[in-house]
């Protein structure tokens, strides 16, 4: 224990004034004072502390000649810029590696008296390959961001299986992801209940009988309902098809069942064709009360809900996504 503390003390105790321990010590001092101060002063002290720890850590790296010092320094610079002016994380992640490569060039291109000169012939090959590799890594990071952007446009694809892709793998997020058919039907549900209630029973019965046997598309119903519900439009919405089919409820007189289906018409994998993770349905019952109709619906359900490993459906988690 004592040894550990003396090691910690060594990290901050300056051996001489002009050393990295001075900066680390200053950083801790500024940090402690910033904790106990408020407002603008607190920000200034915190930033000063951050600058000090950056200088200190870079100095350690240079003195002990850690090979990854440029990456550390570049990361610290990026973090500092991120805190100072609110730049996107994406931009910072993309600048980090090229910045590190540029910093790594400095020892080759600047001599100890701070005179700029061209890197020596034998180190140029190494520097070109270093720079190229960092830019290639940046390309991979950018590809990652492009993938995320695509998923923001087509979020329902995530419920499918990416196993056949040569490019990407999914990180298992468990049953937390649901296709957009669920919120879509969830948004339609109050509109259905509102519009089909308190209608004249005769007209309602004729309308329902017109929906027998085949599923009918309902654009005149869906579009206005979604517009009213502040539904966020995404490119994938073109591939959701909402249909309705009616049937008489045999065990109860004067009651009809109306089933709404949200079907995915977009791309799906072989696996997705087999076990259909996309589609969802909503069952409504419309019954007669005096001369008017009353409609009430169940929660939206997935056609093929995900199951746990022992085969029980995950209904409890599903319920969260109905609203």
């Amino acid at each position: 224990m004592l040894k550990f503390f003396s090691y910690l003390l060594n990290l901050v105790k300056p051996t001489q004034f002009n050393s990295w321990q001075t900066f680390n010590g200053l950083a801790i001092l500024f940090f402690i004072t910033s904790v106990f101060s408020q407002g603008f002063l607190r920000d200034v002290l915190a930033y000063t502390s951050f600058v000090c720890i950056s200088i200190g850590l870079t100095w350690v790296g240079l003195e002990k000649s850690w090979p990854w010092t440029p990456w550390l320094t570049a990361a610290l610079i990026c973090l500092f810029i991120h805190d100072l002016i609110k730049v996107d994380v994406q931009v910072l992640l993309l600048t980090w590696l090229p910045l590190a490569a540029s910093l790594a060039i400095i020892p080759y291109a600047v001599d100890p008296d701070f005179h700029w000169h061209l890197p020596k012939q034998e180190s140029r090959q190494f520097l070109v390959i270093l720079f190229g590799s960092q830019i290639l890594l940046t390309c991979w990071i950018q590809f990652f961001f492009i993938l995320q952007g695509w998923l923001v446009m087509y979020p329902s694809l995530f419920v499918d299986d990416f196993g056949e892709s040569m490019f990407v793998r999914q990180v298992d997020l468990g049953p937390l992801v649901s296709p957009r058919s669920m919120p879509l039907l969830g948004q339609l549900r109050p509109a259905i209940e509102l519009q089909l209630s308190n209608q004249d029973w005769g007209t309602m019965e004729r309308w329902l009988q017109g929906l027998y046997h085949t599923a009918h598309q309902m654009p005149e119903f869906v579009e206005p309902a979604l517009e009213r519900a502040e539904w966020e439009r995404l490119p994938e919405d073109d591939f959701w098809q909402v249909t309705a089919i009616a049937s008489p409820q045999l065990d109860q007189p004067n009651t009809y069942q109306l089933r709404w289906d949200a079907q995915w018409r977009g791309p799906r994998s072989r696996h997705g064709e087999k076990n259909n993770p996309y589609d969802a349905y909503l069952i409504c019952r419309i019954r007669r009360e005096n001369q008017t109709s009353i409609a009430d619906c169940d929660n939206a359900q997935r056609v093929n809900p995900p199951t746990t490993e022992n085969g029980t459906p995950l209904l409890s988690q599903e319920g969260k996504f109905n609203g």
Binding site: F143, Q148, V152, F158, Q170, V171
Partner: peptide, 19 residues
């Protein structure tokens, strides 16, 4: 930006393949 990181798709296969 925050919602982007809630999605879990990583381009590991193409990185390994390209290397």
């Amino acid at each position: 930006m925050a919602e982007i990181f809630t999605w879990g798709v990583i381009p590991i296969p193409i990185i390994i393949f390209q290397t």
